[in-house]
Amino acid sequence: MTSSSSSVSADAVPRPDAKAGLMGQAQSHPLPWLMPVIVVIGAFYLYPILDALRLAFTNASLTGGEEVYSLAALRAVLTNPALPTVLGNTAIFTAASVVGQMLLGLGIALLVVRGERNSLPGMLVLRTIVLAAWVVPGVANGVIWSMLFSEAPFGAINSTLGLMGIAPVSWLSSPQNAMISVIIANIWQGTAFSMIVIYAALKGIDETLYEAAAVDGALPWERFAFITLPQIKVALLINAILITIQTLNTFDAVISLTGGGPGRATEVLSLFTYNTVFNNFDLAGGSVLSIVLLVIALALAGLYALFLPRGEK
């Protein structure tokens, strides 16, 4: 078996010639190629962010008046006694929504993939139904759930519970329940996105890996833990980044379901920011808050990104 040693070493992966043709031009003079993207990103993404950053250090207000640079808005926002509550709400809302959407999305995706593999009927319908929830605008989502959660004697869920002899639940009027209700509504709407991302990742897994594992004697849960999870890890992380940012920015569903109440029980950072700008006309304060939101989103995205595999394929 001397020949095997040569196959161990004869392993040079061929590299395409990097300096050839258009690719070569793009690599030696990248700027003209990147210019269109830089301009678009600069005009539509970077400028608003920089302007928000600038406004955060002014006293700007929607009601006008002379703009003066100051740290007052920054100080006011950071010392606002409501901020810890709002950040706490945001943490709970985001964490629960992300975990819930990932788990539920994973569950449904596994169900659909399994169903399709066994060619069960109705899988397309199931996928479509879940997607339908995602297509519903956030405000409409809030309205739908506010009808379901309504505590009026004619509220959908409570009157159904009543028929079964179960006492009405204060879905929205109790601070703890209100947060749970808002999370449920958000998970209901957001799950489809996670499902689609995870579904695509699951479809990409080589079927023979499961066969190899089955022959290797792996139990179903072991196949999930040792094949499925590692194979969809990247998709899960990217999905986590996307839905975390999306959840951090969610306020339309909250505003139409609870308006942030009762009290501040469901007031999340994005809603707080919205209220600061459009209720209090405090543009500077709103800018500070949106920067805070941006920093939190970036920090979380960076945290997730640490777990992304790098350098290898």
Partner: peptide
Amino acid sequence: ASYPEISAQIQVLIGEVLSQA
């Protein structure tokens, strides 16, 4: 001009009281 902010605070505190928080 400060009324919207005052109103927002009153809304919050009424909510807190009504929800027995």
